[in-house]
Design a protein around this nucleic acid. Structure first.
Length: 656
RNA sequence: GCCUCUGUAGCUCAGUGGUAGAGCAACCGCCUUGUAAGCGGUAGGUCGUCAGUUCAAUCCUGACCGGAGGCUCCA
């Protein structure tokens, strides 16, 4: 309970030194300049809080827009919301933004901030706003749009709530009116709340008005803003760390894979070292699947159209498929059809093929759950602008399985499946997860509501029983059924969608799948689609970025490099290497003419887990010396102990 | 698919309207070495592709093929 004189505002309660940027009055976020009344429940919002950061960034977006309009008076304002780690502002511009302009805009922003402008809120009527914004066609569209229409989602900060407001930026020394923008706010009290050394214009790009492909393409300016210089530095460091870990870069540096232009966009080739990692990943997965009761199958890469007509893919996802090859047609001289041709498609999914295996003969309830597994290579015609290294490729191999079971078996099957998935991901070194439940997309689905409800409920229950955080992804499901996906956090905190588990009542119907029940009746199985890596290529990329190329020994393409101190120690190390090689260790001895320091440097750059160094002292005592990737060393280790240490790390799949 | 940017040696990058260089890597020598680059030499590019402008194009223009960042999309 605080007593304040009449006419007091939040600025009296929370002067700048308190670090509050806006306040919550009776549950509503408002400017600090808002007048307070007796009995109001008031709570300050600090700049470091999520809401405070959003306000800081939103206000910075205004500064960016003001700067842009000052430099480019013809710029028409679009929208300018805060986003994760920053903000953007969209403009309709006569010319696209160039890197030089971005620098100029940033300079102009600095000078606006230094001129100390206050953000003054002013409520306007619709007709006043229309008059005032006559020169801003996009803002006009916003206020004329139906308030309930779907275009006005939460990202649009301009309008919303019960009234329209305009924010005036006023020079606090001269009282001069500098700029205005339609905006629902709230904002920081004045520009000095924005630290000039903690904002940055990042980049520009094109973006459709309100994210709608059928609308105008605008220029979007991205920027970032933080409470302190250090906070921004931390963010920029994170970005550069992410860049260093980029799998496309590491893939080339470590000679793991490439995307030859001759092959085509989004189609990777694996080089020997990448091939080793991939093979080890697959081998381990195979072993675990065998132990978990999966049966291995193989299916072709192409198939006649009828199969994908039956599955519904050609109805729903023809756009995502490579166009067909028309084969076998023959014509008479007069052009009349002699022999009807057929369309063949590259498969975008494996499930229709697996269904054919299920229905190849009569199935008994005794066979269920039937788990068919395949490393199945699929091809999807991703739009040219979305292809991205191995995380969004046009050809990739799924660790794909389809489980056919009864409704009664479904819950326990899903539970054990989730255990299996999470356990396997942990073995590859990913340990931080949450689950996401994707529900029916009302625009794009097949089947009945009750089937969807059942499937969604069972999935939800089994996800909840894992005790992990569960996030809802409304409308995110595939057309044939709801799914759980496992989201993984990597070493620097980024999340990746990995495994997906989808329940499907539809394809069994379309394929008329049946099994004979114990009472002799014919019943329809339920199908579960699941991929744990998602795709091997993608999982490979995630691991590569997660480990920054420094794979744990069991996955490393070269596990040990032997480095003789002089040529005289080559034979000794070669003999040690032979011992390890016989135990299955991937070891190379560097017998080149280089000096040992250079050899260490090379091995270090290749991120080899172990360097075994040997010189006269080691030879004399039947030992070797370790150098690890972190630069530490362990000298004079008896060969038998060294072998043991390496073999142990590999078999335990630990990181070193 | 849309917008902007971009494409020179295996990699990282200079460079010019008169057909090109550096460092690293590769290869060949010399050096014989204790924890991240010893020294010297050699070789390597139709400057993404195809057109156009020009006496002349790696450079200017266009289309196409790659790539990057976004938008849209992601079964």
């Amino acid at each position: 309970m605080t007593e304040l004189p009449d006419g007091s505002t939040g600025l009296d309660l929370f002067p700048k030194a308190t670090g509050m940027v806006v306040m919550r009055v009776n549950g509503v976020l408002v400017d600090l300049a808002t007048e307070l009344h007796a009995g109001d429940q008031v709570e300050g919002v600090p700049i470091e809080s999520d809401e405070g950061l959003a306000v800081l960034r939103h206000s910075t977006a205004h500064i960016a827009a003001q700067a842009t309009q000052k430099l480019i008076p013809a710029a028409k304002l679009g929208i300018g919301p805060p986003i994760k780690d920053g903000f953007y502002y969209e403009f309709d511009l006569p010319e696209p933004l160039t890197p030089e302009t971005l620098g100029d805009i940033e300079k102009e922003m600095q000078s606006i901030i230094k001129s100390r402008q206050t953000f003054k809120r002013r409520v306007v009527t619709q007709s006043e706003a229309e008059k005032e914004l006559a020169a801003e066609p996009f803002k006009l569209r916003l206020i004329k749009a139906d308030q309930g229409s779907t275009v006005l989602d939460s990202e649009v900060m301009e309008v919303g709530g019960s009234e329209l407001s305009i924010y005036d930026n006023v020079n606090s020394k001269t009282g001069e009116h500098c700029w205005s923008d339609l905006c629902r706010g709230p904002h920081v009290p004045d520009t000095t709340y924005i630290p000039t050394n903690a904002i940055k214009v990042m980049r520009s790009s094109a973006a459709y008005w309100l994210g709608d492909q059928s609308q105008e393409s605008l220029q979007r300016l991205y920027g970032t803003a933080w409470p302190t210089k250090d906070a921004m530095k931390e963010y920029l460091d994170f970005l550069s760390e992410a860049e260093k870990r980029d799998h496309r870069k590491l893939g080339a540096e470590l000679d793991l894979f490439s995307f030859p232009e001759e092959v085509g966009s989004g189609l990777a080739v694996f080089h020997p070292k990448g091939g080793v990692i991939r093979r080890v990943m697959e081998d381990y997965s195979r072993k675990r699947h065998e132990e978990a009761g999966y049966q291995f199958v193989n299916t072709p890469h192409i198939t006649k159209a009828a199969l994908f007509e039956k599955s519904g893919h050609l109805d729903w996802y023809a756009d995502g498929m490579y166009p067909p090859m028309h084969l076998d047609a023959e014509f008479h001289e007069d052009g009349q059809v002699k022999r009807q041709g057929a369309d063949y498609y590259l498969k975008p999914m494996n499930c229709p093929m697996h269904n054919l295996i299920f229905s190849a003969r009569g199935r008994s309830y005794r066979e269920l759950p039937l788990r068919l597994f395949e490393f199945g290579t699929v091809y999807r015609y991703e739009k040219s602008g979305v292809v991205h290294g191995m995380t969004r490729a046009r050809g990739f191999t799924q660790d794909d399985a389809h489980i056919y079971c009864t409704l009664e078996q479904l819950p326990s099957e899903l539970n054990s499946l989730l255990d299996f998935v999470l356990g396997l991901l942990r073995d590859y070194g990913l340990t931080d997860f949450y689950l996401e439940l994707s529900t029916k997309n009302p625009e794009k689905f097949v089947g009945t509501d009750s089937e969807w409800e059942d499937a969604t409920r069972i999935l939800r229950e089994s996800a909840e029983s894992q005790g992990l955080e569960l996030v809802l992804d409304e409308g995110g499901a595939a057309f044939y059924g709801p799914k759980i996906s496992v989201q993984v956090k990597d070493a620097i905190g980024r999340t990746w969608q990995m495994s997906t588990i989808q329940v499907d009542f539809q394809l069994p119907q379309r394929f008329d799948l049946e099994y004979q029940a114990s009472d002799g009746t014919r019943q329809r199985p339920i199908m579960v689609h699941r991929a744990l890596f998602g795709s091997i290529e993608r999982f490979f990329a995630v691991l590569l970025e997660h480990y920054a190329g420094a794979f744990p020994p069991w996955l490393a393409p070269v596990q040990v490099v032997g480095i003789p101190i002089t040529e005289a120690h080559n034979d000794y190390l070669t003999a040690v290497a032979q011992q390890l090689r016989e135990r299955g260790v991937r070891i190379e001895v560097d017998t080149s003419d280089e000096r040992m320091q250079k050899k260490i440097r090379s091995a270090q750059k290749e991120k080899v887990p172990y360097m075994l160094i040997a010189g006269d002292e080691d030879v004399a005592s039947g030992a070797v010396s370790f150098r690890y990737r972190d630069g530490t060393q362990k000298n004079g280790v008896p060969v038998a102990d060294a072998v043991e240490e390496i073999l142990n790390a590999i078999s335990e799949r630990v990181q070193v």
